[in-house]
Design a protein around this nucleic acid. Structure first.
Lengths: 337, 337
DNA sequence: ATTAGCACTCTCATGGTGAGAGTGCTAACG
DNA sequence: CGTTAGCACTCTCACCATGAGAGTGCTAAT
């Protein structure tokens, strides 16, 4: 158990290190905070904190840096969250309302905004509906024997696909076919779409129906992620050597994150979780921290996350991830009603 | 004017430097190519080549590296193109035919494939139709007073947009409205769409029509670029220090490229152009070379490009960019017929 | 319990040094 | 005259030594 003074010192070390990215010396703490106690006392306390595992030092005569455990304690017990200021909120909401396009543009813009808000990489996944249903399929003639199939799901997602027909068809015939298929398949989800395909005769029509079914299934699987802010993250001093930087670029490829985010989100809705360094099951991310929050409701849920070095401004990041997540939840709710 | 022997030496220097990324010494050339002449003779010739501006050396006693002019001469007169092997073609075509999705997926996959083919950054722009016309607009109910507008253009591009209505509407009413608007606007392009909006009464219908018009214009402007292979490019030895690497990341933001690619493409169709280092009007790209090729025809054209350090394997890159461009042209033609 | 004082450790910037790589020039050669 | 051997010269780069500086840990005094 830490004494009050030890907690206070740990807090100062973490704050200082997050700000400067330099190991924190006993002297620096006394000077910076005009402490009543001497640097020698601080040294004694620091030695104890190190024995307990909250801090380390890179070599004998360097200052202290927080360990993962130190950050963990800081996040849980010490940190004073830096609330999202009113003008920050206004800017964000203003930017988000500018977008007239579809869901994709919202998500992509959200990643950009969040990333610039916290100065690290931001990831937003597309909301995954528990059961997305087909709202409408449409066929548009492209040439005599090719057509574009557009499937619109009830969560607003759209999937396009190009079809090759055996028989030439007109737009009128395509409309008729679309109407028939909509009657047959409207409201179908990935689980039951196959059962509804019975009773079709024309081979082109069967192929089209199958394409619709495949589209629905692809959309069920596809949890696209929108990522932005690589530049921000790479400017952090921890990547000041080339190997680390290349590794960072590799680690941040979106596909590595999906599993992590999914498993994290199972915890519960609405909460914001922080995963620090070694706590991460993926060993490649042992130098990284992830702040992740779920947004949406039981019908459609996705995640918002920020990823950066363990030396991350948790005070700023956590409230901002939470804020963006709740904002996304609202917007999603407004659209779906 | 260069003698045959000077040309040969220049060719060897460029080849060697492209391969090893190390300045090429007179000695190394003699050894590597088992030349009949001595290294002293090579030195004399190299001195002359340097006086003419084809090569330089970084400091007094280093080997030679090609100048931009040297690369230029190499590309125009010396280089033996490395043809795209049959199994390379087969792999590429196989991968491309895997994609069942829309144009976007094609383009994005093409960038990925090309990038891995040449080990540098690849950029593919969306084909821009001279005049894209509206083929079909569709309205899908999302909630009582919101609807999704989907505009499909005759080149297969799709734009979605969410509409807020003043009056609640049913899907049936939306269908009727879509039919009316299609009658009014089908075949409209960005130039004439405004003129066709006359005679509409219902304010929601006017708003919808205006949204269609805006979508068409946005699509005219939006020339999206698909970029891949940052990792590949960053592994080149020229980026072995952090500043250069960060700068590289910044330079390769897609938006910087658009102007360059567009202006380049004006030259003519079907040809592949190479822009080497300082030849580039954008000073930020003075250390980069660009190999760019147009694809498509007068109706719909885009560009395929590879971007990398001036020390680029032009022999491999140029034929592969040309090949991918012609392949894209074919595929585009097949779809549009 | 706190703290002044000091020895000790480790890093990092600096400068010197010498090996090595390569060139340019000169003089000799066919 | 073109070619080439030989050599002086230049520049880089890796290596090492050095010393200042930063910080700690410990001891002994308060």
């Amino acid at each position: 158990m830490l004494t009050d003074r030890q907690s206070a010192i740990l807090g100062m070390v973490v704050d200082e290190y997050i700000e400067t990215a330099e190991p924190v010396s006993s002297r620096a703490l006394v000077d910076r905070h005009r402490l009543e106690i001497s640097s020698a006392t601080i040294r004694n306390e620091m030695a104890r904190l190190e024995r307990e595992g909250y801090i380390t030092h890179p070599y004998t005569s360097a200052g202290r840096i927080p360990s993962d455990m130190g950050y963990r304690f800081y996040v849980e017990a010490l940190m004073a969250e830096d609330p999202v200021a009113l003008d920050e909120r206004r800017t964000v909401e203003h930017q988000l309302h500018q977008v007239a396009g579809g869901l994709d543009e919202w998500l992509s813009l959200t990643a950009t905004i969040l990333s610039s808000l916290v100065g690290n990489v931001a990831v937003v996944t597309r909301p995954r509906t528990s059961t997305a249903r087909l709202r409408h399929a449409q066929l548009v003639e492209l040439s005599r024997d090719t057509a574009l199939l557009v499937c619109v799901m009830d969560d607003g997602r759209v999937r396009q696909r190009i079809l090759q027909h055996r028989q030439p068809v007109t737009q009128d015939a395509l409309n008729a076919r679309a109407t028939r298929l909509n009657g047959l398949l409207a409201g179908a989800d990935a689980a039951n779409v196959r059962d509804r395909l019975v009773g079709l005769e024309d081979p082109d029509e069967v192929a089209t129906a199958r394409a619709v079914a495949e589209s629905i299934e692809e959309l069920r699987i596809a949890e696209e992620t929108f990522l932005d802010g690589l530049n921000n993250a790479l400017r952090q001093p921890e990547f000041s050597d080339v190997d680390r930087m290349l590794e960072a670029v590799a680690q941040l490829q979106a596909y590595r994150l999906r599993g992590l985010l999914e498993s994290t989100v199972d915890g519960g809705t609405g909460t914001t979780r922080v995963i620090i360094g070694q706590e991460n099951p993926d060993t490649g991310l042992h130098d990284w921290s992830v702040v992740v929050s779920r947004y949406g409701d039981t019908d459609a849920a996705g995640v918002v996350a920020v990823i950066g070095p363990t030396r991350m401004a948790y005070q700023r990041t956590i409230p901002r991830v939470r804020y963006i997540a709740s904002l996304m939840g609202q917007l999603l709710h407004d659209v779906r009603q």
